[in-house]
């Protein structure tokens, strides 16, 4: 896969730190927040943000969500997605939940996550944070917290790689092949 690496490890860390700062600032009056990473790569990112928040004295619970059973493109994609499972071993009712994902693109993943949340309980508030916002929304949604906005062409693919799953932290842009990102 010939892609162009545009964000290396150092900047990657800074973007995560800035997300943490923004989330803490916006939730100063909230005793505890719940971070939910959207699988797959949002899940390790949520864990890291949670660690950073704890280091800065904020009470945090962390879980993860798999939206594959809620996708709206299941009848059109040719390969069946693997299910990784949702892992939220605590009550989310009346809590402040922040969904965390690597890339915000069409908004369809976020829509699916919100639909799934409606089946899991009723949080007091749901916010959304992403490492990269690359534009080209197909649904009327936006992020509360953004690491970095990238100007992209629609046909390009933005790939985020994380240490936990890929061995390294970086972001790259790949020319379009087949199918969409995520």
């Amino acid at each position: 896969m010939e892609g162009k690496r545009i964000i290396e490890e150092e900047e990657f860390q800074e973007l995560l730190e800035s997300l943490t700062t923004k989330i803490i600032k916006a939730n100063r009056d909230v005793n505890r927040v719940i971070l939910i990473g959207i699988k797959r790569r949002g899940a390790p990112l949520a864990k890291r943000v949670a660690l950073q928040m704890r280091d800065r004295g904020k009470d945090v619970l962390v879980g993860s969500i798999d939206i594959n059973l809620y996708r709206d493109d299941l009848t059109t994609i040719d390969k069946k997605p693997m299910v990784y499972g949702t892992d939220i071993p605590f009550d989310i009712n009346d809590e402040v939940v922040i969904l965390i994902d690597d890339v915000l693109y069409t908004g369809r993943t976020l829509r699916a996550a919100l639909t799934e949340f409606a089946d899991l309980g009723r949080p007091k508030k749901i916010e959304y944070a992403c490492l990269i916002d690359r534009g080209h929304r197909e649904l009327p949604v936006c992020a509360n917290f953004i690491g970095k906005i990238l100007e992209t062409k629609q046909k390009e693919i933005v790939e985020v790689r994380v240490k936990e799953l890929d061995g390294e932290d970086y972001v790259m842009i790949v020319p379009h092949k087949h199918g969409k990102n995520n």
Partner: peptide, 16 residues
């Protein structure tokens, strides 16, 4: 094993 988690949810149905 993954789908079993759905059986523990308050709403035990997914739209798949």
């Amino acid at each position: 094993e993954t789908l079993k988690e759905i059986l523990e949810r308050p709403i035990k149905t997914v739209p798949y």
